[in-house]
Design a protein around this nucleic acid. Sequence first.
DNA 1: CTGCTGCTTCAAAATCTTCTGAAAGCTTGT
DNA 2: ACAAGCTTTCAGAAGATTTTGAAGCAGCAG
Lengths: 181, 181
Amino acid sequence: MTDSSVSAITIARREFVDLWGQMANHWGINRTMSQIHALLMISPEPLTAEQIMEELQISRGNVSMNLRDLINWGIVRRTSLPGDRRDFFVTEQDVWSMFQIILRERKKRELDPLLSRLDECMARAGRKPETPEDKAAHESYVKRVTELRDFFTTFDRLSSALLDNQPGSLAKAVKLIDKLV
Amino acid sequence: MTDSSVSAITIARREFVDLWGQMANHWGINRTMSQIHALLMISPEPLTAEQIMEELQISRGNVSMNLRDLINWGIVRRTSLPGDRRDFFVTEQDVWSMFQIILRERKKRELDPLLSRLDECMARAGRKPETPEDKAAHESYVKRVTELRDFFTTFDRLSSALLDNQPGSLAKAVKLIDKLV
DNA sequence: CTGCTGCTTCAAAATCTTCTGAAAGCTTGT
DNA sequence: ACAAGCTTTCAGAAGATTTTGAAGCAGCAG
């Protein structure tokens, strides 16, 4: 297919894959992994590794490893078609569910460890020291770590609430906050 | 100061700086930048570039550039002490304000551009095509992009609401969401 | 059993990011 | 105007991450 005959939808799809890849950068996520995810999101049917290779112009090994990671995150799964030996891949179809899966993983991998480590930080600070300079250091340290712990605890509660809830709950939350103004 | 005479508070401070640096990785933020931020957060008084260099064992140039970035983000500012020609640096003292500043910047740099680009993606998809395969591609593309747009619009509203609000609003919102279950 | 297809792995290569240190730029005091 | 003290910049070095491609594995059909 020559460039001059590429359909509008093909161009739009590439734009979206690129967009999703760029976003990944800002979030500490591998760009290619994100592009594979984008491709699966907008595909009406499951894709093979081969199709992904071709569309993104990347190696077989790269596709394989990134798919493994996406599967570990729980947002992609393997599927198969009768009479075809190849693996096919699909991503979670619902945006809210996808968000919940990602939130659940990030909470587990980042928020929970963050809270324990903040506790550790508090534990290590020890008792108020005697020397005046250490005293000031101790005081502002304890204050700040405590504040951060409180803040992230609230965040943790928000995550839990969103994980327990139905699709519309984020929208509801927004309305509730608006009313608090 | 030899290792054996390092006070508990010094060890705790290092633990915190390290923690904050690790967290940065997960969020697509430069580790050193985050460590400088951590150091400023837990310091009772403003610090000089020299103090930061020594504590983190990094070069003068590195400190200078990362401080510039932190200042551009709006979470650190320059200050000065009478009778001292050196620049001193402090970070926003309040955790909620700090969160708002970061949220405001990330919204401006990521969320707003994301929404415009999603609109662009929709615009480029064009009218429903005639060939059956393009039709299926078009349909699932439009569906997915629309869903994502809606999702991030809600997110955008949440950001705006949090930016307009007082410290406790996040906590209040969490409680309200809990009641919705 | 053998050959074929497709998947995974991993060491080395390519690429991207971050850091250093020397040079140039300011500002202030003399 | 000059020197001293401090800061900024940026090209190249160092370090980290990502990608490739070839070797090896696994399941299947003949």
